[in-house]
């Protein structure tokens, strides 16, 4: 029997499905992985005063800040995807979220140009010193879903380091990461949506992220279409309904599924990713000419939560 462990972090529920060893050993390793997720939550929570992100925001406009290796690696991924996606993925949306009333009461300096604060070139990374610098006061990182994916990547690394290789991990049922498949199976089957004929992803040593434009209507800014922001128009996106991406890491999958819904083109992501986009409520399109491990089936879902069927 697989062992399931879970914890609350980043405003959602993370779950690990582990198999292959004694329950005591699986539990000990799984708890270590959950601890890694909690550490990631503590570092990357934009809402918490004591997070690394808040510390970076307080230091914005000042000298570089030395970072732990995990945060540094994540910011490198953010900058890379931001460039590749032509800015549709943007880790510096904090000021825009404030402006749209999606964060606390902090007022932006009216004299400050929002475009400057959102410019990813203002996030300077120094690989030698493992440091980051936000070049202008008021700049603020908000990592959104990519933090969730990165937490899953770190948890998976703990599992592998401790010898647990058969596992499926998910964060909030929108991001999943698979290691070795269950015994006798080729892959973990992940269903995108609750309907009987929803698309299915078969995952092994890969991650899947699903982003949907309308999955959190209750928290949308006034008059906007989505909680996922289009950084170029400073509003909720009106582009795709949803996007699903399979990538080698959960952080990368999360970044690209967000970027696709925000407005980037299916041709923007690098080769090697599996892409699936939903243009209307009942139409999923496979990005042309791209390899994919999705099994496409008729789909009518409008909100695509992800359910995992481990065995």
């Amino acid at each position: 029997m697989p062992l399931r462990l879970a914890c609350q972090a980043m405003g959602t529920r993370f779950e690990l499905v582990l198999a292959g060893q004694s329950e005591d050993q699986l539990r000990a390793v799984g708890e270590l992985a959950l601890e890694e997720i909690q550490i990631a939550h503590g570092r990357w929570n934009a809402f918490a005063n004591d997070s690394v992100l808040s510390h970076l925001a307080r230091c914005a406009g000042g000298p570089p800040v030395t970072l732990d290796p995990e945060t540094f690696d994540l910011l490198q991924t953010c900058v890379r995807v931001a460039k590749q996606s032509r800015g549709f993925f943007n880790p510096l949306l904090g000021p825009l979220l404030h402006k749209l009333g999606l964060r606390d009461e902090t007022k932006l300096d009216p004299a400050e140009d929002l475009g400057t604060l959102l410019d990813v070139r203002g996030l300077v990374l120094d690989p030698k010193g493992h440091s980051a610098q936000l070049t202008r006061p008021g700049m603020q990182l908000d990592l959104g879903a990519i933090a969730k994916g990165a937490a899953l990547d770190l948890a998976a690394r703990v599992l592998v380091d401790e010898g647990v290789t058969c596992a499926l991990l998910h964060g909030g049922t929108s991001t999943a990461l698979a290691l070795d498949p269950p015994p006798g199976k080729d892959a973990w089957q992940v269903v995108i949506g609750p309907e009987k004929h929803a698309p299915r992803a078969h995952l092994a040593h890969s991650a899947l992220s699903v982003s949907a434009a309308n999955s959190r209507r209750g928290s949308l800014p006034r008059g906007d279409h989505s909680h996922i922001l289009d950084p170029h128009r400073s509003r909720g996106t009106r582009h795709l309904q949803a996007a699903a991406v399979v990538a080698p890491s959960a952080a990368t999958a999360d970044a690209w599924s967000t970027a696709l819904v925000a407005g980037c083109l299916p041709s923007d992501p690098p080769q090697g990713l599996g892409l699936l986009t939903q243009t209307t409520s009942d139409s999923w399109l496979l990005a042309p000419g791209r390899p994919s491990c999705f099994h496409i089936e008729p789909c009518t879902t409008t909100t695509p939560p992800l359910t995992a069927a481990p065995f």
Partner: peptide
Amino acid sequence: LKKGVGLPHPGLY
């Protein structure tokens, strides 16, 4: 005032 709700660093710091 609300900036002060919740410490900016963990207790260990």
